[in-house]
């Protein structure tokens, strides 16, 4: 096996191959739970946890699984981990669990997870798979949180509402309110707001990419190097 560029794995996961913004995977939870920052963050972290565990196990067993049962085995592993995570959340983050509801079991069907298992973990060593899982997961979480934050902000003029669900009672005070008279553009919180928000985020990412592409083209016409901003 040749060398693995960890930096590349990390930048891919967080940015270049961001599962939500580039691959457009896992959109169902992405749309459904991001009506507040805390919800987004919660589901993002749960997804990351599952992703990490599944990537690690798939990578560990990658040499022993026959081709014809590869997918069923992956699905089995992922489903087990999701169930475990669901039970844990039910036990320790009860209210958040109630809010995220069906979307926790639905992590099973998040294409990101089976996608990474199939495309990365089943072909790469354990360490690299772990790094990949964390960066992909954090990239996904970042988009969920960002989308949640902007929708919460526009929709009801607050940030970190319900933080105690995730961080315990001390976090109750974290909630920020913009302006008591803010009328709240409800649309942002309702489902259409999710589509518009995601669209805007994707556009923003493309804009940034293009800006840097242009900058790089202007600066260095010589060798095509790797993108440098992480």
């Amino acid at each position: 096996m040749s060398e693995i560029s960890y930096r590349r794995i990390v930048t891919d996961g967080l940015w270049h191959n961001n599962q939500a913004l580039v691959a457009l995977l896992g959109l169902c939870p992405l749309m459904a739970v991001t009506n507040s920052l805390v919800n987004g963050l919660g589901l993002g972290l749960a997804t990351t946890a599952v992703l990490l565990m599944s990537n690690l196990s798939v990578s560990t067993i990658r040499h022993w699984v026959r081709a014809e049962v590869r997918l069923p085995v992956f699905v089995l592993i992922i489903a087990s981990f999701v169930t475990a995570v669901e039970l844990v959340m039910h036990a320790w983050f009860h209210e958040l669990y109630k809010i995220l509801g069906i979307f926790i079991p639905l992590i099973v069907t998040n294409c990101t997870i089976i996608g990474r298992a199939e495309a990365f973990a089943s072909r790469n060593p354990v360490a690299a798979s772990g790094v990949d899982a964390v960066s992909i997961g954090l990239g996904f979480t970042a988009v969920l949180s960002l989308l949640g934050a902007s929708r919460e902000l526009i929709g009801q003029g607050t940030l970190f509402s319900g933080a105690h669900l995730l961080f315990g009672e001390v976090a109750r005070a974290w909630e920020l309110t913009l302006n008591a008279d803010y009328p709240g553009v409800l649309l942002a919180i309702l489902p259409p707001g999710a589509f518009m928000g995601l669209g805007t985020l994707i556009a923003l990412k493309n804009l940034i990419d293009r800006y840097f592409d242009r900058r790089r083209a202007e600066l260095a016409p010589a060798p095509a190097t790797e993108p440098e901003q992480a």
Binding site: I61, V73, L76, I77, F81, T83
Partner: peptide
Amino acid sequence: AVLGFFAILGSALVGLAYQGT
């Protein structure tokens, strides 16, 4: 056999998690 083996592992994991929580 392979699938069965992982089924044992997976359901054991779920079972443990259930008992623990």
